[in-house]
């Protein structure tokens, strides 16, 4: 059993080292950089609390664990969003006041685009491209065989390619591309 203080220091070091990968992952997951920064804090707090409260907890690979926790926190956020905002629509906005010009940031587009894929494929793509993780790392994070991770990645990319080529989704893709 590792000393709690040592683990907490390792956690702080890891957060420091992985912050830009984690931030990018969360940003492309949530489509919002500010919220991504908030999520990083949530992860830090929750893992910190976990280590402190239960020092027998076996976090074998803290690095994998951080990303797993990050992914879970993002899912929570996405689910909570609908709960918090729903009631605003009929009262708050007057369409006439809203400018037509709206340029979408690429993370918003990507978030929508990856939403077209089965979540298991989207997750591998996010971890690889935005989380900066290798396939071996991703296999550890998701507790999956390496070959599965790789094939999900390729399936996902291929599926996106297909969407792009399909005539029926032309307007959709127009929407997705810069």
């Amino acid at each position: 059993m590792k000393d709690v203080k040592t683990q907490l220091m390792q956690l702080a070091d890891l957060m420091q080292a992985e912050r830009s990968n984690m931030l990018r992952y969360a940003c492309y997951r949530l489509g919002d950089p500010e919220e991504a920064a908030d999520v990083l804090q949530d992860v830090y707090i929750s893992v910190h609390t976990q280590i402190y409260n239960d020092d027998s907890v076996k976090i074998l690979n803290l690095k994998s664990y951080l990303f797993r926790s990050l992914s879970n926190h993002c899912i929570d956020r996405l689910q909570n969003r609908s709960k918090r905002i729903v009631l605003s629509i009929d009262t708050v906005h007057d369409i006439a006041d809203v400018s037509e010009e709206y340029s979408e940031a690429d993370y918003v587009r990507v978030t929508k685009m990856l939403a077209l894929l089965p979540e298991e494929q989207a997750e591998v793509i996010r971890l690889r491209i935005y989380g900066g993780k290798s396939f071996v790392d991703i296999a550890a994070i998701l507790a999956l065989p390496l070959s599965t991770v790789k094939s999900r990645f390729i399936y996902g990319l291929n599926k996106l390619r297909k969407y792009m080529n399909e005539e029926s989704t032309v307007s959709h893709i127009k929407h997705l591309q810069p």
């Binding site: 830009s20 931030l23 990018r24 492309y28 950089p33 991504a36 920064a37 690429d106 793509i125 935005y130």
Partner: peptide, 24 residues
């Protein structure tokens, strides 16, 4: 090449990366 095209399209834009660097 087709996979590369999709892969390239998914890469963070310089603007976003800059924004994230600022935040972090």
């Amino acid at each position: 090449e087709e996979l590369c095209a999709v892969y390239a399209m998914l890469q963070p834009s310089a603007k976003t990366q800059h924004e994230l660097d600022e935040i972090s």
